[in-house]
Simulated assay, not measured.
Amino acid sequence: MRVYPDQLLRNISPLPQCCLIFGDDPWLCEQSRSALYQVAKKQGFDEKIQLTQETGFSWNELIEQWQAMSLFSSRRIIELTLPTAKPGTEGSAMFQSLMQMDNPDVLLVLTGPKLAAEQTKSKWFKSLDAKGIYVPCITPEGTQFQRWLDGRITHYALNVTRDSREMLFALYEGNLLAADQALQLLQLLSPTAPIEPEHLSQYFEDQSRFSVFQLTDAMLTNQQDKAQHMLSQLKSEGVAMPIILWSLFKELTVLFQLKSAQSQGGSIQSLWSKLRIWDKRKPLYQSALQRLTLEQIETLLSKSSTIELRLKQQGIEDWTGLSHISLLFDARAHKVLEHIALD
């Protein structure tokens, strides 16, 4: 039976004969094992035997452990790691044989990397799955990651604002371990107070001399020398590119909404409060609105999306591309640079 990690606790009482924990996400794998072993301990499984299918491994050792009497407790766990998730012919036969010998005092736990679809259709997998549960530990993406992140924020009882949630999403999508560690840090630093993006910048930018907020402010006001210097400094200090892209997209999206309303002949006065733009920041946007056309802002959004896509899909940090985008905040640069592709 397939059970996802967040459903595990609801499906292991009583414990099944075996549990298969496979996947490439280390945080989910570790959390699943931890939850399983906590429940097992409460049900009297106090001893754990760890085996690994490596060079020289004998499958007879598994059956011997299955049939042996425990020296320390009445019930025990046998954890077998399959580094390639391929037990082979002998291992497949052994699993099928073991599942014909019910032993309520033994819990078999198999761990390993992500299983391919054809592996879940194999005889060895089906024989184990019929007597137990399969926990696929696959890193959630997109809306699934957002749900996971919201769940962990609730778990740590953090007061995180909407903008900060978006920032955390951009920073940590694809890395649950780092995300959870960051939330633990926030619990220590700000257990009750609202957590704003500015706080996240302070916590996670490694005490940079310049912040991403100063960078985007320089872009909005077309202070090119200052913006290029900040980009170079942020790169040298190891600031994560996703946090820069998050801030850039946020400002460009606001700018696009304001310019769209302006282009349609409407007033942007009502948008200031709706977009949560305070008086001291209005001159920054007004400067960009006077300088850039709607089409130029769309170009900035498009090129920013290209950089983000390359980062997420190929792991490429295109700092030259960010420098190029900064220059395009100057309307005059569009005639010279707009045709240059960021690839």
Rank of each mutant, 00 (worst) to 15 (best):
N60Y: 13
L176P: 15
L342V: 03
Q50K: 12
Q286L: 12
T253C: 12
M94L: 07
E237N: 02
S236R: 02
E118G: 11
K280V: 14
P83W: 10
Q65Y: 09
K303L: 01
K121P: 06
I78P: 01
S58L: 13
I195L: 08
S260Q: 06
S74E: 13
I243L: 14
G266T: 03
L51V: 03
L20P: 06
H155A: 08
E198W: 11
P140Q: 11
V212S: 10
Y156N: 10
L252Q: 02
S287F: 09
L215F: 07
L328Y: 01
D279C: 08
V39L: 13
H339I: 04
E79M: 07
E141F: 06
G142M: 03
V239A: 08
Y4S: 10
V212G: 07
M241Q: 11
R310P: 06
V160Q: 07
K335M: 04
P136H: 10
L189W: 12
A35P: 10
Q264N: 12
A130E: 06
S74Q: 12
R75Q: 13
D6E: 15
T81L: 09
T320P: 11
A341Q: 13
L15E: 00
Q187I: 04
Q207P: 06
I78D: 01
E118V: 14
Q67H: 11
E54W: 11
W246C: 04
L215T: 08
G266F: 01
A130R: 03
D105A: 01
I153L: 09
T253S: 12
P16W: 07
Q214C: 03
L322Y: 05
L289I: 03
S304F: 01
M101P: 00
W59P: 02
Q144K: 14
Q262Y: 05
Y285I: 05
I195R: 07
L292S: 01
L200K: 07
T216E: 10
G321R: 11
N103W: 00
C18P: 06
H229Q: 04
M69N: 05
D180N: 11
G44D: 03
Q38K: 15
R10K: 09
K280N: 14
D102H: 00
A178Y: 06
L62M: 02
S122D: 04
A130W: 00
Y285A: 05
E118Q: 14
R76M: 06
Q119N: 11
I49V: 15
G321S: 11
Q286P: 05
K131P: 00
S247H: 09
L322D: 04
P136V: 09
Q313D: 10
P14W: 00
A130K: 04
F329K: 01
D129S: 11
